[in-house]
Design a protein around this nucleic acid. Structure first.
Lengths: 187, 187
DNA sequence: CGAGCACTTGATCTATGTCAACGGTAGTGG
DNA sequence: CCACTACCGTTGACATAGATCAAGTGCTCG
């Protein structure tokens, strides 16, 4: 990333939207944080469709379609840079990277719906914190329980109980227990 | 598709593998039928990762990586043609089509894990039969119950009961009730 | 200080899993 | 042609993970 791109980079607070499905725009590279992708299902409901983490490319489909297929919302604070940046857009290689990302993302999202509640929540936390080595996790790294519940197809209550169990076992150590109300959203 | 490609096209019987994760190869376009994609999860288990239907591109990641990311197995009889065929591989457009397919596939796979058993099974059947207009569905269009159970994260018993209910309701009409043992597999 | 939201926790209910028995179909080998 | 075998699918009885409903705590903001 050169200086121009650095200047065009974008920060999102937890809960902010990056873009909405159908709106026009261009692709982004997620430099840090985690983002939730949603689409409108056949019932008109906004439904979870994927999870993007550090290093992933988002919205590459705009190169083909001009507009975004999914909506995207920051699960935690995020940093984004324009993509593919200075390299020529007609080269296939960066697009193939986006393709590989999209495939892995889809498979990961499916795996968050497999198995028991504890396994699902653990897997989600590992995906969100996969760069961290210690089990000590700042609470702010995790999205709200409502989000985690949505992503894992569990309920808030179950996620809460599961997290308590994991902490009691020592599997997970969260540093600041409570979240409180998030900062006011501007999106 | 020109004559050369037609000649290189491939037919798969229900249950046959097209390729295995990690093996070398090139992309395919699924001309008819449905294919299940799997990957090896962190426990070494083969886990459902996506569902490809008529018109989808499979294995586009080989253009980047040389080898397949997922394993692929025919859920029903399939016809495949090499992709991107005669068009130049360095052009980004076909790759972008593969990208869009991969994204939709991921979101569809997630949606098959949402909601109650009946809704999940219904959604799967619609995806497999989306080209059909009538509710009358030849049983051979559907994959084995074990596959459907795996894909929807239900059990064989539940899928069976759900299908019975849907048929009793008249929501679904299957034409030949039973499947029996599938033909001997050569792959 | 009051309102609203995020989270926790308890009691109860239920959809679905588990376990098990059975029948039907297709392939196999005599 | 007829067992024999191996699955695939169906169905029932029972167990349970997680949903639902509900009450309560503690943030943060205005």
């Amino acid at each position: 990333m050169d200086d121009r791109e650095m200047a065009r980079s974008l920060r999102l607070a937890c809960g902010q939207n990056l873009y909405a499905a159908g709106s026009t725009g261009s692709p982004w590279l997620l430099a840090s944080g985690s983002i939730r992708l949603d689409r409108i299902d056949q019932d008109g409901e906004r439904a979870f469709a994927g999870l993007a983490v550090k290093g992933d490319v988002l919205g590459a489909e705009t190169l083909l379609l001009g507009c975004y297929t999914f909506s995207s919302t920051a699960l935690t604070a995020c940093e984004l840079v324009p993509w593919p940046g200075t390299s020529v857009q007609t080269e296939p290689l960066p697009v193939l990277k986006a393709l590989a990302d999209a495939e892995r993302r889809g498979a990961d999202a499916v795996s968050l719906r497999c198995g028991e509640a504890a396994a699902r929540v653990k897997r989600l936390i590992l995906m969100l914190a996969h760069s961290l080595s210690s089990p000590h996790l700042p609470r702010r790294m995790l999205p709200a329980l409502t989000e985690m519940a949505d992503i894992t197809a569990l309920t808030v209550g179950t996620v809460s109980r599961t997290l308590s169990t994991l902490q009691a076992e020592g599997t997970l150590v969260l540093q600041d227990r409570r979240r409180g109300r998030p900062p006011a959203r501007s999106g």
